[in-house]
């Protein structure tokens, strides 16, 4: 059984790296979905417990939601907003790859340092979960569009789920279900929000939302009682 787990691990790591390199949003959506489905399969290969009915239910649920519902929702949102198909990263793909490899090394090192007080099926699961979390965070920070930030968020959750699977026996499934529900709602709302942002601003470029901030730099005047006054004057001009 361990070999199967190892294979899945390798696939997931490649998935993560690919995510960093992927240049099209659709590709990213499929990758994240694939990653989720793979993670959903993971509990099947865990020995020791056998396949309990609840395991079965959860596995199917997760595979369904992550593998099918999310990509459908996201592709629908993508179709609705009609944006460019490119990812538009703030950090170029090659640099992202290099950072990704560093993140992988750091994850392995972290695993060495943080000894968990449990027995784990595969040595690769913990570093993989760190790696996935890092990649998810990295994606949310460096990708321009709101929809790619949603993808980063899902990746982040995938990492947390991988961690959860690895400590299956101690980890209450209820918590896992709660997180899943959280993410589901988040994706749902973000999908709607992305649509509305696009409707309002003609783009879903989260970078351009900066002009919504509620203050402006006053070069000469740091503070005065007339601060609102001068701002409104500018507006009227």
């Amino acid at each position: 059984m361990e070999t199967y787990i190892e294979i899945i691990m390798i696939i997931l790591i490649i998935c993560n790296l690919w995510l960093l390199a992927a240049s099209r949003i659709k590709q990213c959506i499929y990758l994240v979905a694939f990653q989720g489905a793979m993670l959903g399969l993971l509990p099947f290969f865990q020995t020791g417990h056998g396949i309990l009915p609840r395991t079965f239910i959860i596995v199917t649920g997760i595979t369904l939601i992550k593998g099918f519902v999310f990509p459908i929702l996201l592709t629908k949102a993508l179709k609705d907003v009609k944006v460019k198909a490119e990812v538009e990263p703030l950090v170029s793909h090659s640099v992202s790859m290099i950072i990704g490899i560093f993140a992988l090394i750091i994850s392995l090192w972290l695993d060495e340092r943080l000894q968990l007080p449990l027995t784990i099926e595969s040595e690769l699961i913990i570093p993989l979960s760190y790696f996935t979390i890092f990649v998810g965070l990295f994606l949310t920070v460096t990708r321009k569009k709101a929809i790619t930030q949603v993808l980063g968020y899902i990746t982040l959750e995938n990492g947390i789920f991988a961690f959860g699977v690895s400590i299956l026996s101690e980890h209450p499934w209820l918590v896992e279900m709660g997180i899943l529900l959280d993410v589901f709602v988040a994706v749902f709302i973000m999908g709607i929000m992305v649509f509305y942002i696009e409707k309002e601003f003609d783009h879903i470029d989260a970078d351009k939302l900066a002009h919504l901030r509620d203050w402006k730099i006053h070069k000469n005047k740091l503070f005065s009682w007339d601060i609102y006054h001068s701002e409104a004057e500018e507006e009227s001009k």
């Binding site: 949310t140 920070v141 939302l209 901030r213 503070f223």
Partner: peptide, 21 residues
């Protein structure tokens, strides 16, 4: 007061990515 706290103003630049960072 505002002289002191203006130092922190550039932190609040409105870019979501950096907030996430």
């Amino acid at each position: 007061f505002s002289l002191i706290f203006n130092i922190f103003r550039p932190i609040q630049h409105g870019r979501i990515h950096f907030y996430l960072l």
